[in-house]
Design a protein around this nucleic acid. Sequence first.
RNA 1: GGCGACGUACCCAAGUGGUUAAGGGGGAGGUCUGCAAAACCUCUAUUCGGCGGUUCGAUCCCGCCCGUCGCCUCCA
Length: 465
Amino acid sequence: MTIQLHDTMAGAARELVPLEPGHVRVYSCGPTVYGPAHIGNFRSFLFGDLLVRYLRYRGFRVTWVMNVTDVDDRIIKGARAEATTIGELSERHRKMLVSDMQTLGIAMPDFMPKATENIPQMVELIQKLLDGGHAYKTDDGSIFFRIASWPEYGRLARLDPEGMKVGERVEADDYAKDDVRDFALWKGPKPDEPSWETSIGPGRPGWHIECSAMSMRYLGPSFDIHTGGVDLVFPHHTDEIAQSEAATGQRFVAYWLHNAFLQMGAQKMSKSLGNIERVGDVIDRGISPRALRLALSSAHYRAPLSFGEDSLQAASSAIDRLDALFAALATYRCDGPDDATLPDLLDGARAAFEAALDADLNISPALAALFDLVRELNRRIDARVLSTADASRATAFIRDLDRVLGIAPALDESLDLELQKLVDDRAAARAARDWAASDRLRTVLAERGILVEDTRDGQRWRRGE
RNA sequence: GGCGACGUACCCAAGUGGUUAAGGGGGAGGUCUGCAAAACCUCUAUUCGGCGGUUCGAUCCCGCCCGUCGCCUCCA
């Protein structure tokens, strides 16, 4: 079975065939670190994470690059307002980004290049465009991409290049240019703005050029997959394609993948709408990181995803259900023979799981396959048809699927000495049929975040939250 | 206006031209249990925004209408 991915350029799902067999090169548009990223941004990064995790699960070698934009108008403005440097401001927010990514269990990209550390690569690219007649310099030292030199401009967004001329946004840009549709590759120096001395003159990079330069640096002039939010289709990715392909003469990207927005009620979550929440806000409200991850992952990436208290509570409950199964499997003891039909059950679950994700990363049926399995395993635990070894096999199996999902409980499930003593004391109290003491200890443990449950295999515990 | 999507139960959300319309959450009842929790069982959409059309048959294809959202050089 092959992996199908919906390519925005084709407007349809296409079979993934890596340029280099067995190796997939992925570039994800990362954030501009002018402030803390909000969870809408993280939906995007989580989508990149799902893609990369699944490709790796399927046995591909993956090289994943996510850029960090650390120079732009908002960063400059922010640094000025705080009387600090763009370097300090952006590094502070980059660290928060990495921290939040770790909280959400997002795999660290192989490379997270900063724009300001790739200026020479951008300059080289811009020089090529100047040499090829695709770019021109204006009086203030800015350099623009000449859209008229690139007939295929706008294909990704299905734009009519002629129709764009009526766009009445001439005033939107402070820089003079030949054609309103032309976009900045390089912005000429201005007082009070950071500027780099380069062979194409002083100034700073435009927004789009960094992604072309950095993706090519780490992945080559032509690579497999480029991801980002739907809002980036135009102009960002449209411009990236034009400048990259005009410079190299090669197809830039083989598959363009775009995720839909996170919805807060009827609208997208966005800073300009003021309806944002941050990872820290949600965690501080007592929602576990895994529940947040599940809530942000539970719909297909190209479908708008509703976010709110209901979805967080639903995800928390689903995580609890998963945790309860792990706890039950860990405590389960039965000396009987192995369940002869368990291998078929697990094979069926895996087949359903993979079939769903093969189809353009359709995570909903994949989660359904997991939770179908959860129910069936609980049934078999109740019926005691599993052997002790079967319980271990089932645990290992779910952990294997979880390489893709990232929602299973942590592996390290040991308690500190004090809590372990309380757990042991309660087991002793129960053995002595001292219900008052055992109930009291159960309450004490619950207040410490440890949920104790009694089963015919004895007492078991799991972490709440 | 141009372009791109969407409307499935109380909420979230898959899906298929035709046997029972996934899964999660919530709710009701039940089993088990010292109690509790967890788990399991049963029930919770004769129906897929509305109206037409194509078809032996449509939620799924086509048209129109209603409603919602996104992008059109700030934007994951």
